[in-house]
Design a protein around this nucleic acid. Sequence first.
DNA 1: TAAAATTTTTAGATTTATCTAAATTATTGT
DNA 2: ACAATAATTTAGATAAATCTAAAAATTTTA
Lengths: 217, 217
Amino acid sequence: MTLAEENYLKSIYHLENRGISGVSTNAIAQKIEAKPSSVTDMVKRLAEKELLHHIKYQGVYLTEEGKKRAKQIIRKHRLWEVFLVEKLNFSWDEVHDVAEQLEHIKSKKLITELDRFLEFPKKDPHGDPIPDQYGNFQPLDEQILAQLEVGESAICAGVKDSSKAFLHYLDQKGIKLGDTISIVEKEPFDQSMVIALDERQLTITDRISKNISVKRI
Amino acid sequence: MTLAEENYLKSIYHLENRGISGVSTNAIAQKIEAKPSSVTDMVKRLAEKELLHHIKYQGVYLTEEGKKRAKQIIRKHRLWEVFLVEKLNFSWDEVHDVAEQLEHIKSKKLITELDRFLEFPKKDPHGDPIPDQYGNFQPLDEQILAQLEVGESAICAGVKDSSKAFLHYLDQKGIKLGDTISIVEKEPFDQSMVIALDERQLTITDRISKNISVKRI
DNA sequence: TAAAATTTTTAGATTTATCTAAATTATTGT
DNA sequence: ACAATAATTTAGATAAATCTAAAAATTTTA
């Protein structure tokens, strides 16, 4: 598989898990940052290789083999992210670009040994699960912070938005995975909320609370 | 720089350090495993980027910038080799192919931090020096095993041939970096020699003794 | 339901990196 | 020195991955 093919597969996999039905050409184009016509071409090639089904003017669906391949790439991406954060002092907003490159390195032994070296981590630095060598992973049983009610407490477990800007915001406010957060106040008008963590109180907008996953306690 | 450009620069750098004069198209073609006509094309592009000088029908010479780039790639290659051997249980004959891929990952922080994580190694698993961030490295003051005389002793310091086959041979015979080797006997007829290491005696051909670097003691 | 808007595909072009085959230049042997 | 040989370059082709512009299909909306 070429680098471009791997990137398409991975993007389509992520899009399939967000929306319901087949993934549209436009959606892929947006994610990959390419023109829709380029997507049509690549989709045709992936369909020939039986990594996805394509119904013209409808959408695409990954085959089992396509999903398997996508999960292997995601496994590599997330293992490298753990390595970068735990061993090389990267912060969680710096890892993405480098992991995008590392995920394409081809060596079975490399990944097996990296996994062992990192002591078989189950989640990446953003709280996302790391598939095992067969592609299996625990689906996260989490809810978004915005859904909690006043008085409830939860542990910060992941982020829905892994953009540099968002992660940087969280760092700056001192919010990180594992933190215990309690809801102090909810403002129905604009859906902002006041949360308590580390003896401090903090007001956050819905833009924030909708992008933090938590585990209730 | 593209992946192909990086591979050409690295290969030309190595060839320049073996032979004396300009590197020939054919020599590059052989090293890269491409046709001479492909080399001509790529050389033209690298010359346009001022990474090397090219005199038609003569050879090529890297510019200072070309050498600098080549050494950065070699630095990355060798640091990754150390990582693979020391942290991921690779043997020295397994590292090359994976390091060939890893050397092209683009991230300054990645290499700075990897260097620190490995505690600033000065040599790779084959005994070759690792350039620092400026491209400087200690040129090795070593000689080849074949040049030693009967009765002399030396420490195994590196290999001139990093092929899987050769490294595998050494592993099988139990020869590794750091071993103390003494010359017991030299046969002028076929240039084979009997060496002593670890209480054992071993007969090796000139093919072997010419590809092992040693430090006299 | 037909026109407008949107989405998707097709057709044709471009860039990178490669190839084969033919032409050109350099080197070598007698 | 000059014909044979070897090395190198040119010309033209191909495959991957992309693009623009235009055509076709689908969806929306009035």
